[in-house]
Design a protein around this nucleic acid. Sequence first.
DNA 1: GTCTATAAAGTGATAGAC
DNA 2: GTCTATCACTTTATAGAC
Lengths: 231, 231
Amino acid sequence: MREIKLSQSEPKRKLLDAAEQLFAERGFEAVSVRDVTQLAKANVAAVNYHFGSREGMIALVISRYVTPIHEERIARLDALEKKWPGKVVPLEELIDAFVRPLAGTVRKSDLSEQLFCKLVGRIFSLQGEALPPAVEEQMKVSIDRFMKAFAKALPTVPSEELIWRTHFMAGGVIHMLLNQEMLHRLSGGASGTPTMEGILARFIRFAAAGLREGVEVEPTPKKGPQATFDF
Amino acid sequence: MREIKLSQSEPKRKLLDAAEQLFAERGFEAVSVRDVTQLAKANVAAVNYHFGSREGMIALVISRYVTPIHEERIARLDALEKKWPGKVVPLEELIDAFVRPLAGTVRKSDLSEQLFCKLVGRIFSLQGEALPPAVEEQMKVSIDRFMKAFAKALPTVPSEELIWRTHFMAGGVIHMLLNQEMLHRLSGGASGTPTMEGILARFIRFAAAGLREGVEVEPTPKKGPQATFDF
DNA sequence: GTCTATAAAGTGATAGAC
DNA sequence: GTCTATCACTTTATAGAC
């Protein structure tokens, strides 16, 4: 449960908080340095003083989000592999570990859960060049480790197939993080107003079924020995 | 099989083509009027003359893509319901009809398939305000009709659950359309280089399994009467 | 229809006073 | 560290000549 805030001077923190909020609401491209300093009630020059440039500020906001998410994912995966020593980690628990750190239920910034999710969604839907290389590297490391775990949980799914399925899965989360209100609007309210916890549960069922497609399920021993505790 | 181009003056078409290409490559926000006129070898004032404003141009590009996609979806759904009169349309065929018109395999603009997909992905990941109301209305109509068809194909899935599952599904396609190259890079080439047709087949299997999750499957009569022709 | 010229506002960044 | 003033551009949009 690390804090998302690093130790930083008060005005710098204020700038970052303002930037986060605006980026979440409007996207990175649509926010100017002046928008940020105005909301933070700081001087126009403050951004360049503290971050070197607008790009530096964006990169810092991004890494301030991605790094803890990355670490949380890895920590959860480590914990799962400890919890199921030598055994295969159940697919649903893997997906949970992969997805939950994105959803703002673990560590909250000052943003509301909704804005947190939107910002995470925007970050994870950034295209190549827009992503700082160090951040892309972190994403890659997470993905590599989870891909191996997924492959172990689904040994009969060919690896190329599995890559595409996890890609589809990732798209599902990102879209969910970004477009909750639009779903509400498009569905005329019929999507209800579930909590993030409820949405995650739905997503995990959906994704697990998609990832597992075509895999023979053992003849449903509704109370197998490995299912008796802890999940 | 309508053509994507409406009858338009030559310079206007050139502007639209240039705009499409740049929007696909960089996203709407990152393209200026001058970028477009420069690529189209037209005058700076041409955009405002032909489209009234930058926003007008963007709206036209968007509707030039969304409208045929919408019509294609509806036409395909109509055809399916005609093909399975009184019966339930198989889920896989519904997903195909919903997704294929997005993937550039039906009608191509002058853009390469890859750029076409990217532009479609960008359009369908636009947030509320950025989307012209008429366009959002078309999307809504498609979605409504398909939601009803999905509900018929999956009568035991509660409607709120189904809405979320189709939302996750939509995210999967959009992400796939936008991030093919990134997948290739992140996976170190292990995603292979399948054709769009191959990717669609993979996606349909994945999405169908996710949508169907928890639905009792009839005891696999591997050659039921309704499965003997046409699919 | 196409062009030049220009308006009016906004952009990121910085020098230099305090 | 904070501020003002300003530079050097770029942006969309338009008026008016051709």
